[in-house]
Design a protein around this nucleic acid. Structure first.
Lengths: 134, 134
DNA sequence: TCATATTACTTGTTTTTTGCAAGTTTTTTG
DNA sequence: CAAAAAACTTGCAAAAAACAAGTAATATGA
């Protein structure tokens, strides 16, 4: 039921990272919080790619366990929880931005995040700083 | 049998990238070629994390189809094939290096790729250029 | 040269993960 | 106070991954 990431304890930093966020969905949730101002379960569900409810719940739990996200109650709605990136999570900004940059170079199709791509090209440091600030 | 990546055609560049290399193994193969001077099926198998033979074959085929890798016969051994990164593949260097950097900051354990981490810290541009040169 | 070993896979089966539909609990809204 | 919303959970089928074994084409060593 829960994600058992079967840690590949080889000491490789690439494998270390992939064990935490190297699946089909985690980086999309992180993207939603980091760049699309989403921060609730419902918003993640409606994000476009169509993640299943159980998988989303599982990934949120996993990312929280790994210290990438933290969850707190919405003060305005006691049914709702707000997910935020921790510093460890925000530190993934360069990884996300490099993926976007790479796709910008190698994807033929018109992109949905063109705005972000332009921001990266014009003022990458500024964008990174903004994300890092939280 | 073959990998059907179920393309998430939302136009998002993060999703675009993940559809190509966002699984448990692809980036490890790319890492092996990019940083560990591995380039044959056997070498990938022995790389430490223990990928299964069928999954490796599947991923190599997929990455070749996506234009990340190219395969050629080893002139010195007609049983063997040599896998190399294409430009598109080498362009993933910043993604890999950022993952390594992130893990360097957030992994407590002593790392196996300390050498690379130091190289990144001392002369990232140089390392990137070297990888980009092929 | 002929048995053995390599290399790169493929095939079949089991196990794990994902995807999908539906249900539950708590809180809010009209 | 009935209905809707938010965040999950549960159960089951389908897909993917892991595991074990086998195959085909070289190459190697006695």
């Amino acid at each position: 039921m829960s994600k058992k990431p079967k840690l590949r304890d080889t000491g490789c930093p690439v494998a270390f990272g992939l064990d935490i966020f190297g699946d089909r969905w985690s980086l999309l949730v992180i993207r939603d919080i980091m760049l699309n101002d989403k921060n609730t379960y419902q918003q993640f569900l409606e994000a476009g790619e169509g993640i299943s409810t159980n998988i989303l719940a599982d990934r949120l739990k996993h990312l929280e366990t790994e210290g990438i996200l933290e969850k707190s109650q919405d003060p305005d709605n006691r049914r709702s929880y707000i997910y935020k990136l921790t510093k460890k999570g925000r530190d993934l900004a360069p990884v996300i931005l490099e993926i976007i940059t790479w796709s910008g170079e190698h994807d033929q199709r018109p992109s949905a995040l063109t705005g972000v791509l332009e921001q990266i090209r014009k003022d990458r440091k500024g964008l990174e700083a903004k994300i890092r600030a939280g």
